[in-house]
Design a protein around this nucleic acid. Structure first.
Lengths: 209, 209, 209, 209
DNA sequence: AATGAATGAGGGTTCATTCAT
DNA sequence: AATGAATGAACCCTCATTCAT
């Protein structure tokens, strides 16, 4: 039964790799089975529909991200530092091996637009997804309390929106960096760092700019 | 020959509608032909490959956007006001009927990741695409000259990156807003307006925050 | 009405060229019309079915060949010389510009195997076709009379069969010489000349070898 | 796995039958699948492209012929007798059940003229093809040695050319004999036998005729 | 009469999924 | 339980032929 789990992991790994490389639609179940060294029928035994395989991978991807944000949340840093850590984590996603996770998320968001997915599964994903939002909110609240963040600016939606914007764009950047000849310019790491500074300085000082 | 152009428009309209609604891959040439009330062969007469139909629509979409930015560019406003107008234009795209245009762009960026497109056609699109970037740059330069924008902040990459971030995210928002049950939270218009204020105030005042 | 005939000739010429180059099936009516600088509908006006165009060309091809053999027939040569002239004519077809005629014949023989053609048209072609056979027969008869050919050998079927064999193979050679990488070896002109000598010497001397 | 081979044979048989009857182009993959009582997808599973199915059949056809010539080659007959056996084998092809094999070869030679085939596959076929030529050459050489063939006549190209001519024409005859109303006269078996005698007597005696 | 425009009936091929061992 | 084999539905695209001007 360990072996069973192992096989399952093999399939997931194969699927994840191929999905990242070729997208969901261009990756056939046969190719996944081949890469996982199992028969197609076995693949279907574990994942009766291709979609279930996709869903499971996306769930994994999200679950891998959450601990990172949990760590930040439970650390002894100030609220300000936590926000900085969150932004740093985002930026990392574009430039490290973890990029595949973000790329898959991006693909999935595209996928569900045109392929209706059962709501239950969607909700499950949604929960993990919003968890990250909560960590941000808590960091802001903490920052106001511990004085590391200006109360005035933390209260309005600017920061949350900025963070959201940032997160969205980061996913897209990771995804676009797959393209050999992207038609969309991907900003340099330096640019992203500067924007980070902008957000942080906005948080630190009170009043409008 | 008027009729010929008309039929062409019919097909493009049908394709655009279906592509927006169902995506490029899930929309078949047959369905487009049906919706345009022509035979498939006719559709292929005008657009010998599905890809050419997609490209043409994307070109149209971009060409519809460019004039808007040209107007901003050639207006008598200050550099600062131009940047504001550009951001406003972006925000509009999420909340107006033009949303389908941005949605198609988003889909296309996904499409070309996995479906290699001839480079020539890509370049053509690229040109229109980068034009918007130039308008931004010129607005910044002008702003420095006319004093409406702080020289210090215009020179670094922060603003361009922010604008880029903003543009990327906007496209994604427009796209996501098509979903009945998006798993990604789309920020309110208010939130976007606040971020706009953040960018603008950053531009106006010199020095770091 | 002269102009009408001219246009007809243009179409036939275009078709003949394309048929020779690409075969009947791979040549579309549209391409023929384009090469002839007429509309497709016009092409169909003159040749209501593609097949009729093919038939007409084949008729032309045959009719072009017949005079050549008629000339031989009506010349003042001996029977022996006439047979020699016929064989020479055959050999010419592989190595001269007239090769396209033989190539088309070869293609046509393939075509009618799988595409049933109205018998009337077929008969018409057949007539021209057998005419060449008659010329051969007459040459043989004359050769016996004028003493240039051994009576004994002219009477059996050997020579006629040899000539037929020769004709069949010649058509095939002409056709095969279109292939860049033929899998069938095409004999040299020298080889064909030698076979010619074999046939002629067989005719000249009496008795079995 | 026996069953797998069986199904493969079923498909090949169906394809061979239909190709012989209707030609390569007029035979659709669907019809082959139907005749073989399998789904189209199954057919494509075994033969990913129609061309591969064609090639495989042609390879089989050739491989069926080669042993016959190998037998002749390794027999204890004289060189003269071997040549006779080869010619007899040719003649058989027109008048026996094996006619479909020769018909397919003929069709294939037509097919590859207009449908470019990968060179590797072509070479493979070519090898088997030329093998027959080698058997002829060896028979001639042996005939000279064992005295059954005139050295003088074996050395020039006449015989090889004649044999080639003969082979080409035979294939065409077999093919044409499928036509209900051939426009090309197919010689009688008697005629072919006489030509055979001509070739043989040429080989036996020295000197020109 | 001349023509470009229009089209339906296929043809080859793919792939998620089911069947049978 | 594991698997290769089997498959129909669908997709993109072509072309001889007809229609409408």
């Amino acid at each position: 039964m360990q072996a069973k789990q192992l096989k399952r992991q093999q399939m997931l790994a194969a699927a994840r790799h191929l999905f990242t490389e070729y997208g969901f639609e261009r990756t056939t179940m046969q190719k996944i089975a081949d890469e996982a060294s199992v028969g197609v029928a076995t693949l279907f035994r574990y994942f009766p529909r291709k979609e279930l395989l996709i869903i499971e991978i996306i769930k994994n991807v999200i679950e891998e991200m959450v601990p990172h944000f949990d760590d930040i949340n439970s650390s002894s840093s100030s609220g300000y530092e936590k926000i900085e850590a969150i932004i740093d984590a985002y930026i990392q996603y574009v430039y490290t091996a973890k990029r595949d996770a973000v790329t898959l998320l991006e693909s999935f968001e595209y996928y569900i637009t045109y392929n209706p997915v059962e709501e239950d599964l969607l909700n499950e994903i949604n929960q993990s997804y919003t968890k990250i939002g909560r960590v941000m909110n808590q960091a802001l609240e903490q920052g106001v309390e511990d004085g590391s963040i200006s109360e005035e600016n933390a209260k309005n939606m600017t920061v949350m929106t900025m963070m959201n914007l940032f997160g969205i764009a980061i996913k897209k950047y990771a995804f676009l960096s797959l393209l050999p000849n992207s038609i969309v310019p991907v900003p340099s790491k330096k640019g992203l760092e500067e924007v980070k500074q902008l957000i942080l300085s906005y948080l630190k000082r009170g009043g409008t700019f």
